[in-house]
Nucleic acid binder design. Structure first.
Lengths: 196, 196, 196, 196
DNA sequence: GATGAATGAGAGTTCATTCAT
DNA sequence: TATGAATGAACTCTCATTCAT
């Protein structure tokens, strides 16, 4: 239907504008213009700037949760699950750099997202990640010396910083870069940075 | 550089307001009111909202660089340097939670800071961190398998996520929490999360 | 003039919405939704919000004039004519409370209706009322001490206030209330409020 | 102080614009322009269009209540009290035609004022008026045949219609007109319109 | 130094209306 | 006849900033 087409175009335009200017500086007029539609149509479909932003963020969280839940439920070894998570972030950056950039710049910590609900989303994600760490500890892969939520923070922090640096530097993701990032995170997280 | 007392009061008020509402939503009138001065005075001293924000951010970067440069120059073993860096972040969170919160929410990735200059600040910090990693590799403490800038991302990402979680959850920093965070980051970064 | 059923439904919806929200705050979308039709259809039939409102108001004036002209032409005693007029307002309130409410709230004095034409409508009504007052003076029923247009204002003002109070208080019209209102207006208007 | 001066100028401008265009069609830009001040200053002082309007309406109600309470408390004969009330409305029309016009067009019945609070204001006024009617009945001046609230409606309705006609017709109030209106209302209300 | 009245560009949002289907 | 996607002018309100005192 034509309806979804225009909606999709507006969402894409919003992704671009939110990435370029940030939520606060993004103007609805920019988004409309970028989408090639009138002012009012954005409101016709999305009601407000806030709703438009939330729809975008929601879609991100949903993808993220879906992936995490798949990994939690999977019977693969923990190491593969960690690989899956890193891969998800890197591939999303490759395929939807705008979405990833908005996540990193406007959601992760931004005060824009400092609401009860924003916190809850994060906690849900961390909870799922923690489950995987617990699975890893129970399977004997991960050490029990470090609490699983701390493992989560370190693991996730590593990924996020890699992504952030790419976002900030507007670095394109090559196959080679992806592999090196994956190896670095995985190796340090599992075996440490210490020379042997 | 003898700031008048009023200047300090305004800076403190700005720290609070920027933390509570974020840069975009913070109003100069709020800051003036919080400081108990007229808002003409804020302009008298700081010229603009942007300048006021930058002065705050600048002070953060300067403290951070000073610490990093001390560590780089120090002849202590790499492990102690890493401890020093983690300690700096945790202690700053404990003593200046507003500043730390602004750094995490408004500077780290926020589009507010997506300028050439913002990127440069980060790169300078990463550069200093990388030096320490190189020192570690050269001293034989850190493995050469992982490039030093990747080590930087992983190490810093871990710290930042610990801080972020505390900021988001408005968690007070107890001695015990500080120690456990320190141990977790250090242990995983150096020896990995894998069970032995 | 064979209105389609849809037209009637739209008019009824408009009556409700105009009463509930007033002309200025009534949205065409509300009216369409209330009527259960698309808002294109409202335009198809009525062209604009203003026209839709005017059709409603017009219908009121036409009913009012028709009644007034009957009374003017009638050979009944003046007292009966006054009774007829009061009855008309009270019965219309009972049967078409929305219409009456709109008249009282949006037409009587509202700036919405402060046009040359709005004034003319009122003047026409007052003119007809004045004729009856003159008939009353000529028949010897009403005193010649008060000019007929002043009699008109006092008589109509009494009715309008009774109606307004019911509209404002959303008071349902019982038989008993109707009688008491009728008696009060009639008695005071003809014989005065003074004790005898 | 200069402060109050500007505030007064803005209020006066608002009175004019609200009268000319009605609340809904009045634009804040018009009011600012009329007052010869900037856009923002109106907001600086009054916060919103609604507040500005309410301040105006409030001032009217306060004057009205003050007068009514004086009359209720007075030991003058009821007839003089009625004269006082009529005089108040007529004189206010003469001296503050804009205020009176707004009251008649935007407050009396307008849906603008169809709120719980609007109703309450009216009821308070009617209550005070009723007290005077009761005093009149107790002193033997007014008949007990008609309930005092009905007397109120008839008396007030007469005044309001006189005022409304002048407002609608933009009729200036001459001494002579004032006297004739006073006499007409008083005579009909007390002694009736019937010939003797 | 200190105040806060005054400014006005600019943003989000509303909603009557049009028109292709 | 009927729909509702699409338009855009118009409006309220915000808030960084200026400046006379």
């Amino acid at each position: 239907m034509a309806k979804s087409a225009k909606q999709g175009i507006i969402i894409d335009a919003a992704l671009e504008v939110f990435r370029e200017r940030g939520y606060a500086d993004a103007r609805m007029a920019d988004i409309a213009e970028r989408a090639g539609v009138s002012y009012g149509l954005v409101y016709h479909y999305f009601g407000s700037k806030e709703v438009l932003f939330e729809i975008i963020v929601e879609s991100w969280w949903n993808e993220l949760y879906a992936m995490m839940e798949r990994e939690v439920a999977s019977s693969a070894p923990t190491r593969d699950k960690l690989v899956g998570i890193i891969e998800f972030f890197l591939e999303t950056y490759g395929q939807k750099p705008n979405l990833m950039s908005i996540f990193v710049s406007e959601v992760c910590r931004s005060s824009v997202y400092h609401t009860e609900e924003g916190l809850a989303q994060f906690m849900k994600f961390f909870g799922l990640c923690e489950k995987i760490m617990i699975q890893g500890q129970e399977s004997g892969f991960l050490s029990r010396d470090v609490p699983p939520h701390h493992l989560t923070y370190i693991f996730y922090g590593a990924i996020e910083t890699f992504i952030s640096v790419m976002v900030l530097g507007k670095v394109p993701l090559t196959r080679r870069r992806q592999e090196r990032a994956m190896n670095a995170i995985l190796q340090v997280f599992t075996d440490g940075a210490r020379a042997r």
